[in-house]
């Protein structure tokens, strides 16, 4: 059996997951990255996407996260999400709502940088919806 490490997923409202896992996939701003036991210390911001973790007994945990950052340290991985929802509770209607919000953000953007950021979020959300 592969080595395990401590994986924690926290949102401002609650601690969603704290478990020993063998592997985790996190949607970093500059691309998805996988983490295994003994990964070098690493800190990354996150884009909206899906966090996947494989538990020690083979369980798959999937959470939709919106923004936040992931901290990979010697003691394990901590994902601090601004918002995190279990994948089983995600449906197309929720994503549509999020996409609509993102579209409004694009329309409301005051300058190019803001617009660019909002458009990025929008395209990522659409990607997730397409994958669902």
């Amino acid at each position: 059996m592969a080595d395990t490490f401590q994986f924690e997923l926290v949102s401002p409202d609650q601690l969603l997951l704290s478990e020993a896992v063998t592997a985790a996939v996190v949607p970093g701003t500059e691309g998805e990255f996988g983490v295994g036991a003994g990964h070098s210390p690493f800190l990354s911001t996150m884009r909206p996407g899906v966090v996947r973790a494989t538990g020690a007994n083979g369980d798959q945990h999937e959470y939709f996260v919106r923004g936040g950052f992931a901290d990979v340290s010697q003691s394990g991985v901590t994902v601090l999400a601004e918002q995190a929802i279990p994948m089983s509770e995600i449906n197309a209607a929720y994503l549509d709502q999020q996409i609509q919000n993102a579209e409004e953000d694009v329309a409301d953007a005051r300058d190019d940088i803001e617009r660019q950021q909002a458009e990025l979020v929008l395209s990522q959300l659409q990607e997730i919806k397409a994958a669902l």
């Binding site: 970093g28 701003t29 500059e30 070098s40 210390p41 690493f42 800190l43 990354s44 911001t45 950052f69 340290s73 010697q74 601004e82």
Partner: peptide
């Protein structure tokens, strides 16, 4: 945790701090 210096940052240390501090 003497490893702090060995941290990798993505995108960069400065960018992360800039998003992290307001949050």
């Amino acid at each position: 945790s003497g490893a702090t210096a060995l941290y990798d940052y993505e995108p960069g240390e400065q960018e992360i701090l800039e998003t992290l501090l307001p949050r």
